[in-house]
Lab assay of single mutants.
Amino acid sequence: DYYEVLGLQRYASPEDIKKAYHKVALKWHPDKNPENKEEAERKFKEVAEAYEVLSNDEKRDIYD
């Protein structure tokens, strides 16, 4: 669930989505996790995908 990936509720505002994305993206950035790079890359891609969908009103409506 994209909301879960970003740690958000379904009623999150666009500002909340952006803030959550930056927080979680920093947490899972591969450069910040050199000891667990493969998992970090996978999680970072999930976070980016979730943000791409939830930050676009049209894609978010379809997802919801």
Rank of each mutant, 00 (worst) to 15 (best):
Q9R: 12
K45I: 04
E15T: 06
W28K: 04
K23T: 15
Y63H: 12
Y21T: 01
A50D: 00
E15L: 06
K23H: 10
K45T: 10
S55M: 14
R42N: 07
K45Y: 07
V47D: 03
K37V: 11
K19H: 14
D1E: 13
H22L: 12
E46K: 12
K32M: 05
R42E: 05
K32P: 02
N33I: 04
Y51T: 01
R42I: 15
L54G: 01
E49H: 11
Y3L: 01
N36Q: 08
R10T: 09
E39S: 07
Y63T: 06
K19Q: 13
K32V: 09
P34A: 12
Q9G: 12
P30V: 08
P30H: 07
F44R: 10
V53P: 02
E49I: 04
P34L: 10
K43H: 11
S55Y: 04
N56L: 03
V53E: 02
F44D: 01
K59F: 05
D57P: 14
E38M: 09
N33S: 10
D31Y: 04
D16P: 01
E52Y: 07
S55L: 09
P34E: 09
A50M: 00
L8P: 00
K32H: 08
A40H: 07
E49R: 07
S13N: 06
H22K: 07
W28Q: 07
Q9W: 01
K27G: 09
V24H: 13
E46Y: 07
Y2K: 07
K23M: 14
Y11P: 15
E52T: 13
Y21G: 04
A20G: 07
L54H: 05
N36L: 06
A50T: 00
E35F: 06
I62C: 13
D31K: 06
L8A: 09
Y2D: 07
E41M: 10
R60P: 06
I17A: 02
A40K: 01
K59A: 11
E15K: 05
K37T: 10
G7P: 00
A12L: 00
Q9E: 14
N56M: 08
K45S: 10
L26I: 10
I17P: 01
V53Y: 06
K59L: 09
Y11M: 12
I62T: 12
A48K: 15
V53W: 08
A20M: 04
N56F: 02
V5W: 03
A40S: 10
D61V: 13
Y2W: 12
E15N: 03
D31A: 09
P34V: 10
L26Q: 10
I17F: 00
W28M: 12
R60G: 02
Y63R: 05
Y3A: 02
A40Y: 08
Y51C: 02
H29F: 05
P30C: 04
Y21L: 00
E15F: 02
A48V: 04
D64L: 09
H29L: 10
E41Q: 15
G7Y: 00
Y21P: 01
G7N: 09
S55C: 13
P14E: 13
K59E: 07
R10Y: 04
H22A: 12
E4D: 10
K23D: 14
K19W: 09
I17L: 05
E49P: 00
P14F: 04
D57V: 14
S55V: 11
E41T: 14
D1N: 15
V5R: 09
N56H: 11
Y3D: 03
Q9K: 14
H29N: 11
D1A: 08
L8W: 00
L26N: 03
Y3H: 03
L54Y: 00
E35P: 08
K19F: 10
N33D: 08
A20T: 01
P30Q: 09
I62H: 14
K45A: 13
K32C: 08
N33T: 07
L6T: 03
E15Q: 07
K59N: 05
A40G: 05
K45Q: 15
D31I: 06
N56K: 12
E35L: 04
A48W: 06
E52S: 13
D57H: 09
L6P: 01
W28A: 06
N56Q: 06
L26P: 10
E46M: 13
P30S: 05
R60M: 01
H22G: 13
Y21F: 11
K37S: 10
E41S: 12
L6V: 01
E35K: 10
P14T: 14
Q9A: 14
A40P: 01
D61R: 14
E39M: 14
E49W: 05
D16R: 03
R42M: 10
K19D: 08
V5D: 07
K43T: 03
D57T: 12
E35C: 09
H29P: 04
D64H: 11
P14Q: 15
A48G: 12
Y21I: 01
K23S: 14
E52R: 13
E49T: 10
Y21C: 00
H29D: 09
K37G: 09
D57A: 12
E49L: 12
E46H: 09
V24L: 14
K43I: 05
D16H: 05
N56R: 08
A40T: 07
P30R: 05
S13Q: 15
A12T: 04
K59Y: 13
H29R: 09
K45F: 11
E35N: 12
A48D: 05
S13M: 06
K27D: 05
Y11S: 14
K43S: 05
I17C: 00
L54E: 02
A12H: 03
E38H: 08
K27T: 15
K27L: 13
N36C: 10
L8H: 01
V47G: 05
L8E: 06
V53T: 15
E49S: 08
K23A: 15
Q9N: 13
E38P: 09
K23R: 14
D16K: 04
L8F: 00
E39I: 13
D61S: 12
E52V: 08
A20V: 01
V47A: 15
R10I: 03
K32L: 08
D16Y: 00
V53S: 03
P14C: 13
V53R: 03
R60H: 04
Y63E: 06
K23N: 12
D61G: 14
V53H: 10
P14D: 06
L6E: 01
V24Y: 14
K23V: 11
Y2R: 03
F44G: 05
L54W: 00
N33R: 06
G7E: 11
R42S: 12
Y3I: 01
K23Q: 15
Y3V: 00
N36G: 11
H29M: 11
E38A: 13
I17T: 02
W28H: 13
K59G: 08
Y51W: 09
E38D: 07
